[in-house]
């Protein structure tokens, strides 16, 4: 014979259909005789009635792929990039900033066609980038305006493809907002 408190702890199992036979009978019988337990069982039944909105099939069908796309890259690939990055020695942050500057501020048309292709097909291939495009004017600007922790962030973004992960993880509403923002800034496609 179970105690009142033990029986109460079994209500979730009863509601979930995980209790059967004599155990289920014992709990139901107790609930019939005990007003407190009867109320509690009714309350728990009411709790289970709260609906969860369905985000829709598009969400369910795309989530597994989005997770894998946004998740960590295989260890081997990560090691290769990290070792390449460390080859640069003390310059990774500067290299990342240089790449960023090339991407956002320098006209791409100044470069040769193979470089352009590489830039768009694999932006992480920073080895392809022509750092000679940086002028003396660019470098002091970077040094003066970007804090060391931000430089580290840029480096991480480049190495870990944080930018791509971020894009992939956007939901529909966020993509709409981004699109609007880009249009406002006349940067769409830039």
């Amino acid at each position: 014979m179970r105690s009142h408190d033990d029986i109460r702890q079994m209500f979730p199992d009863l509601l979930d259909g995980r209790l059967a036979g004599p155990e289920a009978d014992e709990v139901k019988e107790h609930a019939q005789q005990c007003a407190e337990c009867r109320d509690e069982l009714a309350l728990l039944t009411g709790l289970r009635g709260i609906e969860v909105p369905d985000p829709g099939n598009i969400f369910w069908n795309t989530l597994p792929k989005k997770v894998l796309a946004a998740g960590v890259r295989p260890a081997a690939r990560r090691r290769r990039i990290v070792s390449w990055w460390s080859f640069l020695g003390p310059l990774p942050a500067a290299a990342a900033v240089a790449a960023l500057v090339l991407l956002v501020s320098r006209p791409v048309e100044k470069t040769q066609q193979p470089y352009q292709e590489a830039l768009f097909s694999d932006p992480l291939a920073v080895a392809m980038m022509d750092y000679s495009l940086l002028t003396d004017k660019d470098i002091p600007l970077i040094d003066a305006e970007i804090a060391p922790e931000e430089l580290a962030g840029v480096s991480e973004d480049m190495v870990e493809e944080g930018y791509h992960r971020e894009l992939v993880s956007l939901n529909y509403a966020e993509v709409e907002l981004l699109d609007e923002a880009l249009q406002d800034e006349q940067q769409k496609g830039g």
């Binding site: 969860v52 909105p53 985000p55 969400f59 989530l63 946004a70 998740g71 960590v72 993880s169 509403a173």
Partner: peptide, 28 residues
């Protein structure tokens, strides 16, 4: 996981993002 997250946050849109984040964290 989505239902669990929704019951904690009460926000359907946030729950979608948090569900995705949960699985990405799990994958990592």
């Amino acid at each position: 996981i989505y239902a669990f997250v929704y019951r904690i946050t009460g926000d359907a849109e946030e729950s979608k993002d948090l569900t995705q984040r949960t699985f990405i964290n799990a994958l990592g």
